[in-house]
Write a protein that binds this DNA or RNA. Structure first.
Lengths: 126, 126
DNA sequence: CCGAATCCGTAAAGATACTG
DNA sequence: CAGTATCTTTACGGATTCGG
């Protein structure tokens, strides 16, 4: 392809770009990994909360609701006291665990590359 | 590990989580891929702009400056008229192309999974 | 005590117009 | 051609309140 010609590979609706959208939401991939690797695809809210240091209850709820709306997991409520809510990977969610694990494994295998990265300064001009 | 025990795998400073931070910045991975796959690691601003449909000049500049500060690419200015600025992958940047290509390939191989995803409604409450 | 909703603030993302 | 200034929108996060 000649220089200056638009790059067809990153069209707005192309598959690779839609994958990246999943990772653009901060907690989604970590929820997928946690459900997959630690709890046979099932966990309740409190377990997820403790498995994701730094997340707030509010962000966890919001992330889970968005993932439910996307079809990545299902939500099961037991009307008991105290309340109990379970989240479960759907078959679709189980498929998306694969790219998450690819990144996870790469990070584990390349800590030195990450150590070379200079943390970007916070609060860049908008 | 017993249920409810904090998940050590997602500590805030762990390697996999630092990888995710790269992908959490929307355009970074696409810039890495474009430089790598289409231009032998070198491209000027206008080429990148046309290769990433949907990006604005402001976001491109901001992304490139952040990546430069992180050590992923270098910036070369020719003081001529009209201006000419080239961006080049550093050895560190070339390493991070690898996980980008992993996701890229997965997306190409799994368009059906992406088609099953229900797009999250825009404008979710914070 | 558990899970979630609401109100609030900050910051990153995005669109557009303008400058050298 | 490359970059900046300004403004709007959206994502993120804390604190508080609600409901069982």
């Amino acid at each position: 392809m000649r220089p200056g010609t638009p790059d067809e590979a990153w069209r707005e609706d192309c598959a690779p770009r839609r994958v990246l959208e999943l990772f653009a939401t901060k907690w989604t991939s970590m929820v997928l990994h946690t459900l997959h690797a630690r709890h046979d695809g099932v966990a309740r809210t409190g377990v997820l909360l403790r498995s994701l240091p730094g997340i707030s209850k509010k962000m966890l709820t919001q992330t889970l609701r968005d993932m439910e709306a996307s079809g990545l997991l299902s939500r099961h409520v037991e009307s008991v006291m105290p309340p109990m809510v379970e989240y479960r990977l759907t078959p679709l969610g189980q498929r998306f665990v694969e790219p998450v694990e690819l990144l996870y494994a790469w990070g584990r295998a390349n800590p030195d590359a990450l150590d070379q990265l200079i943390p970007r300064p916070r609060s860049r001009r908008g």
